[in-house]
Design a protein around this nucleic acid. Structure first.
Lengths: 177, 177, 177, 177
DNA sequence: GATGAATGAGGATTCATTCAT
DNA sequence: TATGAATGAATCCTCATTCAT
């Protein structure tokens, strides 16, 4: 149920890890724990659903890039989408990254991530750079770290953040020779 | 006691958050919980001691940079030190960052962090760039994310990692105009 | 839940302080500790609930005195009620007094105590004696000590105990001049 | 060792039950726990030694009464001694009473108590009243409760307290017919 | 379906007591 | 004899999960 997932999101970005309990999620969602366990087999499933939802949201932001992955402005657009996505829920993505490690079998999350990775791969190749998995991971990591840091500080200047991400990505891509 | 801190490190970088219990730490350290609590007032204190130890280790690696913060090679040296530091304990630093959020009053950790930040500030200014707190945080975040990603993949090429970090830092520093 | 409070009472008057643990209370009450903590936020709250219950019981016994606090027989009736109250649970009240020192913030217990104190004050004044707080405390202490001692010995003669209490109270009240 | 017993006394009348640990006693006494356990077989033994010391102190105060148990002023003197004894360490005696319940086998404390009881018995009989064990217990209880209450309030008027005790004892003794 | 009371394994912490030095 | 580090059973409390209604 969407309410449950949204409740999980709110608790995670609010009081954080320590209050992230199934009972708190149910209460915040306005359902009983009994019902919660009818929608989700266990706590991890809720976390995974939330991660899935957020990945979907990021993909939506990336719509224009998907439309033209090899355009000259594609990298800038990618950076802008990443920045815009994380600006709305600054702490959520960071907390979610931490949770992801604890969640068993995040296999069902792979498809979305693969799509985004492949998109980024196309974007990079559009800039004439060969993209192996390692590079793509580095680029994602850098983008995420800069948005996390900006989110932590409560910054709101999306354009500035996007610019930083773009520059950093470009630098990392060229550093690999 | 050092054994306790090292046990904490090993559990954190091994089985992770969920196994990071006082009893597990004691068992791994080869002491009883009773003894553990004679050395440390509570679990957080152990985590803090570990963070402190790691910061110290990073500062040691940064020794050459502290010696000549404004040398032309200072940024490259800083990146190399960061890379070298994290290569030995790839996952530890990342897991430790997550723990830090949960640890109450990490005030006693501030001095070391301030020293490193001020060092980086000097290094950046040696490159003719004004360094505000936000920029320094971004640079640290980027360096950390790249080392984490490399650590995740089990890479061992320190020089290559250092180069990526240096490039990314430079890019972020100049992106701020 | 009443069963928990009654279990607490039974342990306290039975094996005493050392066996007065949350697990023992839960076991005696026939519930799991989990359930116990759904009814009460912590152990102190159970103790307070028990004290509250006992104060309520004492107030019930004092009903006739509340009805006519200034009647000539009021002091005798007060003594009789105190005796009757404590005869049923000889050791409980004494053990509870000891616990009260350890219980944090027994503020929610004050009202009942104040009502009883004020009643006693009226009774005493009905005998032409000014009652300050110190005197009231002394009277309560004397009444309690005599019931405790009688309870210790397993006495069952309520009338005799009430008579002793009445005499002692009267003596203390007049000793203050 | 006397220092250990006095340390126990100070902790008990100070921070109370919760801080009354063997390690705290040793630290306060200026000895190691190792040494503490060379003097006393266990914690209870310390408590018992303290009780014994306090009973001895009370007996000392009662010296004049022992000298002339049947004198007309004996009851007043007894009350005065009890009051004087407890005034010096107001909270200690009360806390000690609570501990006594927890202490196993307080048999070695009996002799002193018997001596005091027999003294009181003689005093009472000097007033022409037959003293059975029950009455003696009641008298002791009343004396103790009044001193405790006075100690609780921080009163310092020994004469006033002695008078109250004497009156109350007399009343209880005559109430038994 | 939905509810929420009930469960109990597990985690942090304390403290009386021991024993090697 | 003195020391104090080491021990671990026992305590309070939390929280994911179940199931009778």
């Amino acid at each position: 149920m969407d309410a449950v997932v949204e409740a999980a999101a709110r608790i995670l970005e609010g009081k954080g890890d320590l209050s992230y309990t199934t009972n708190a999620i149910a209460r915040t969602a306005g359902v009983s724990i009994g019902s919660l366990y009818q929608y989700f087999p266990n706590k991890d499933a809720i976390t995974r659903a939330l991660i899935r939802r957020e990945l979907k949201s990021l993909e939506d932001q990336l719509g224009p890039v998907f439309a033209a992955p090899t355009a000259p402005s594609a990298l800038a657009d990618f950076a802008a989408a990443a920045a815009a996505y994380q600006m709305r829920r600054p702490t959520l993505a960071r907390r979610l990254d931490e949770q992801e490690e604890k969640v068993a079998a995040p296999d069902d999350l792979a498809p979305a991530r693969v799509r985004i990775m492949e998109l980024l791969s196309a974007v990079i190749q559009g800039h004439g750079i060969a993209a192996d998995t390692a590079l793509l991971e580095d680029l994602m990591a850098v983008a995420r770290s800069l948005t996390d840091a900006a989110g932590h500080r409560g910054e709101t200047d999306i354009a500035r953040l996007a610019r930083k991400i773009e520059f950093a990505m470009m630098a990392v891509a060229t550093a690999g020779r």
